[in-house]
Amino acid sequence: MSDNGVILDVRSISKHFGALKAVDKVNFQVKKGEIVGLIGPNGAGKTTITNLVTGELRKTEGEVHFKGINVSNMQPFQIARIGLTRTYQVVKPLQGMTVEENILVGSLFGRSDRENDLNSARKTTHHIMELVGLEKKKDSKVSDVTLPDLKRMEFARVLAMDPEVIFLDEVMAGLNPSEVEESMELVKNIRAEKQLTIVYIEHIMKAVMGISDRIIVLHHGQKICEGSPTEVCDNPAVIEAYLGKKYAKEVISG
């Protein structure tokens, strides 16, 4: 582990698709136990950054260090096994399997340094299904389950992998307000219990403000601002990115 509790260190990563700079020299650090919000309007490069950090996309340049290990050239499964994992904006359930089996796969393969025979994995799975409240759905096939439950399942699957850092990619998308409330509670409680570090990706600012310790704002693939929720809210560049120039001027001039 590197100094001052930094667990994830993203150093100047870029991703270019031809002439398009989807992510352009983005730096940030995440400390152990923090909740960091990664926000920005649609197309700002949030999901691309997640894909770069978890190894699903090849970086054009830059490095990612996790727990002091350079993971820049590792495959997703290798990165997942040392404790860095993510959920998907569009849920990716393992089709044709039951809810229980989905979570079981996470607990079987999530960590390479863990004793993970089927029986102990089943126990972990059971425990986590209780934690997130999915026991009643355990034998249902994922095709028969509602979207909020799928999101819950995906979160459970990630938890079963026993990670240290989780990227939650728009877990709220597609949920109604009361479901959003519920899922935020769930994340908060479990984070406290498991001492997780979370990077929360959202394009709705309001959703992240309440739970984040620190917020990073992206716009057109670049980091435009970083700071506490209140600092970020007052930053003119952020307001401009979200609301457009004209409105930003009005807000600032009063």
Binding site: F77, A80, T85, K92, Q95
Partner: peptide
């Protein structure tokens, strides 16, 4: 079921 998800879940 889903090869990309499988890989990101730690399956080689």
């Amino acid at each position: 079921a889903n090869e990309d998800a499988a890989n990101s879940m730690g399956i080689n």
